[in-house]
Amino acid sequence: MKDRLLLLGYAIAVIAATSVHNPWWLAAGLLLVAVLAGRQAPTIGWRALRAVLFFSLVISIGYAAGALFGQAVSLDYLILVNIRVYLLIFLTFTLAAKIDILRALSFSRNLTYLVTLVLSQIIPFRRLFEDLRLAAESRRLRRLRLRERYLQSAAAAVHLFDRAEHDAREIALAMRSRGFFQPDATDNAPGD
């Protein structure tokens, strides 16, 4: 329940943070989220800063550069948009640190299963991808030509697809053998 409330609170906070256009209110919101983040606030704050710095800088500098071409440029806008962007990313990182995503999605059994399976599947896929990268590096004796690099990238994708096909079949068999697919065992089970 707690996690579902967190998710709901997060949604409301996001809508609020994009509906309020007074930088003081947004700054107060940022302070509030930092208090909610508690001891993790400094780490989250730093990670959030790094995550948005590049994009925000490009936009801010681009906007400010408009002054050179005689466009109306306002400092208010720069303050407003940067506080808002930082508040939203801070909010998202705080949620990610506090929420148990599986519990938050528990209103649908199928969605919970789906996300559980995805999260457990990402690990072997990442490991395979890392091995593909290292193996390519291990066999590289000089700077590769563009053609060779495309072949390597394409082969990596092919191996990932192969792995996906194999795993999907295996998991389906395993789930069937554990009785997951009995018609009454799933919510909204497909009738056909």
Partner: peptide, 8 residues
């Protein structure tokens, strides 16, 4: 896993 090494 020999697959990881093959790409040609």
């Amino acid at each position: 896993n020999p697959d990881t090494m093959l790409f040609n």
